[in-house]
């Protein structure tokens, strides 16, 4: 009978290699967050002040994207987008990297889920504030940057934090497309070692995800302290 050993040394030896794949996970996360929140702002704007047909379209899109699992959306975009673009324009997307499709799928999902958040943050700003901005002769852009963003940002910080965490978790699915992110790298090492240290490698990957989530949580609690400065705490 073989001893079913737990090999801590193997984890420590290979941890640097897996951490080497961290830029892949982080870059997919950051780029998806950027485009996702951009889309979210646009969708929120459409929901607040768009024409009726646009609001109906956005509502339908919201129902669709809320109900569809991330992995299904990822595969629909990955396999479907080249076909749709191909049949509509005849252009080929063969040159696009896998990461591009991942970012499109994650950004779409985040765009819809964050649009609600942006909308309620906008609604949470009191009307007098906006009137005051008018009275001061601010342009629309000034009003947005100087009045709405600073106040709205504090309100949505907890939601931003959980969005970052859920995008990081969603990126773990990209290994199924053959991208070597943290999980992909851990699996690759496991394969190279003839699958004798499988548990160890998944544990190593898990520890890195755990640490990453810890870092994100710390960053956001610092941000909350910063943006919360000078705010009167209104007891609920």
């Amino acid at each position: 009978m073989i001893k079913d050993a737990f090999d801590l040394k193997f984890i420590l030896d290979n941890l640097p290699k897996i951490i080497g794949a961290l830029p892949v996970t982080i870059s997919i996360t950051l780029i998806s967050l950027f485009f996702g929140w951009m889309l979210g702002l646009i969708f929120a704007f459409g929901k607040v002040s768009g024409p009726r047909w646009l609001r109906e379209v956005l509502k339908l899109l919201t129902d669709i994207l809320r109900g569809i699992p991330t992995v299904v959306l990822l595969y629909v975009v990955y396999f479907g987008l080249p076909q749709i673009v191909g049949s509509l324009t005849g252009a080929s997307l063969d040159g696009w990297s896998k990461q591009t499709f991942v970012v499109i799928a994650l950004a779409l999902e985040l765009g819809i889920s964050s649009s609600e958040m942006f909308r309620s943050a906008y609604n949470s700003i009191r009307k007098e504030q906006i009137e005051a901005a008018w009275a001061l002769g601010y342009t629309k852009i000034q009003r947005f940057l100087k009045v709405i963003v600073p106040q709205g940002l504090f309100v949505i910080l907890p939601n931003l934090s959980s969005a970052v965490l859920s995008i990081i978790q969603a990126t773990a699915l990209v290994y199924t497309l053959g991208i070597y992110d943290i999980l992909g790298k851990a699996r690759q090492i496991d394969t190279n070692e003839a699958h004798v240290k499988t548990f160890e490698m998944y544990l190593a990957a898990a520890l890195i995800y755990w640490a990453l989530a810890g870092v994100v949580t710390v960053i956001f609690s610092q941000l909350e302290k910063r943006f919360g400065r000078g705010r009167k705490v209104v007891a609920a």
Binding site: Q169, A205, Y209, L212, A213
Partner: peptide, 13 residues
Amino acid sequence: FFRSIPLVVLFFL
């Protein structure tokens, strides 16, 4: 731990 780690990794673990 369970809230920070992707579900797919939890399955493997």
